[in-house]
Amino acid sequence: MMRRGLLWASTNPWLSTRLPQRRFVRRAVRKFMPGETLEEALVEADRLGKLGVPTLVTMLGENVDTAEETRATVAEYTRAMELAEEMGLDVEVSIKPTHLGLDADPEVALENVRELASAAEGRGTLWIDMEGSLYIEPTLSLFRAARREHENVGLCLQSYLRRTAEDLESLIELGPRIRLVKGAYAEPPEIAFPDKRDVDASYLALGRRLMDHMADGGGGFLGLGTHDPAMIEPLTEYAGSAGLDGGRFEIEMLYGIGRREQRKLTRHGTPLRVLISYGVAWFPWYMRRLAERPANVWFVARSMFR
């Protein structure tokens, strides 16, 4: 019930306008993002890099309406890659298709992705996030079109969707770069598994399927986007048995979540990358992060009374 309420809040325009003005909300969100500017994000990327942890950065925002807005997004991500390179940082970028115009014009979104993929050449993977289920087909089409020209494009897949196993099979011969997550959008039970056990089973099966493909000589890369030890431990062992090193496999965790687990992974030499989010449009993303881990709600509650 709490998860459903938080996901509803993530789409509510009134709350997205009012709650970010509350001081306790702004204080609590600092647990999950270092600030609203690229410079603040890269300061943390630099700090983590000195600890041997590479990073991903993403500017929060989605569902933009105009070509001018998409051009501003492209310019910001290009600036992020250039500034990270100047600072000598191992930083990749992760983009949302609707932040690049997928709603208004898929061709505009594709041109924007192509431009960013070109800018990312030699700088790591350009990751394409997966959004709600309405965007699955256009996002898959976007990825396939970009992937024909740029091998450094990666795609996020969500294990809670019933269709994802088929989607992975349709992509696997491309040798895809896949970030596997559980999923954080409100979806009906006919589209997404409502039971956590089924989501977890799907996650493990999808991870093993791609690892098997890579171990058999197929191309690809797997980023495990999870903080769940029940996913991390067996799949890390499976990667080891498949002979996959940090060039083919890594754990990807969110900034501010699971810091103890992040330190443990680093000590054990497990490939780890941390995703740092920034930007002013953080409210929907923040609500989804709370819905993923209801324990975080108690952190917010404590912040209210400090």
Results as ranks from 00 to 15, higher is better:
1 M>K: 12
2 M>Q: 14
2 M>V: 14
2 M>E: 14
3 R>Y: 13
4 R>S: 12
8 W>N: 12
15 L>K: 10
19 L>P: 01
20 P>A: 09
21 Q>W: 12
21 Q>Y: 09
22 R>P: 04
23 R>H: 15
23 R>Y: 06
26 R>K: 13
27 R>W: 09
27 R>S: 15
28 A>F: 06
29 V>F: 07
30 R>Q: 08
33 M>Y: 01
34 P>A: 09
38 L>T: 06
40 E>M: 11
40 E>N: 08
41 A>F: 08
41 A>K: 06
41 A>Q: 02
43 V>N: 15
46 D>F: 09
47 R>E: 10
48 L>V: 03
50 K>G: 13
52 G>E: 11
53 V>G: 14
54 P>Y: 05
55 T>W: 03
56 L>R: 02
59 M>H: 06
62 E>D: 08
63 N>E: 13
67 A>D: 12
68 E>R: 15
76 E>S: 12
77 Y>D: 01
78 T>I: 15
82 E>C: 07
87 M>L: 15
93 V>K: 07
96 K>I: 02
97 P>G: 00
98 T>R: 04
98 T>H: 01
104 A>Y: 00
110 L>P: 02
116 L>F: 03
119 A>H: 14
124 G>C: 05
125 T>P: 04
125 T>K: 05
128 I>W: 02
129 D>Q: 02
129 D>C: 04
130 M>Y: 04
132 G>C: 03
134 L>S: 15
138 P>F: 03
139 T>C: 02
139 T>L: 00
140 L>G: 06
141 S>G: 07
148 R>E: 15
148 R>D: 14
150 H>M: 06
151 E>M: 09
161 L>T: 01
163 R>T: 12
167 D>K: 11
170 S>P: 07
170 S>R: 15
173 E>P: 03
174 L>Y: 13
178 I>M: 07
178 I>C: 06
180 L>Q: 04
180 L>H: 06
181 V>M: 13
187 E>M: 10
188 P>Q: 12
189 P>K: 11
192 A>Y: 01
196 K>H: 13
198 D>C: 14
201 A>W: 12
201 A>P: 07
202 S>T: 10
203 Y>A: 06
204 L>M: 08
208 R>F: 02
209 R>G: 00
215 A>Y: 01
215 A>S: 13
217 G>E: 08
226 T>L: 09
229 P>E: 15
234 P>D: 09
236 T>W: 05
237 E>A: 14
244 L>E: 03
248 R>W: 11
261 E>W: 01
261 E>Q: 13
262 Q>E: 13
269 G>P: 03
274 V>C: 04
276 I>H: 08
279 G>S: 06
280 V>K: 14
281 A>C: 11
284 P>E: 03
286 Y>M: 05
287 M>R: 02
288 R>K: 10
296 N>R: 11
297 V>Y: 07
305 F>I: 14
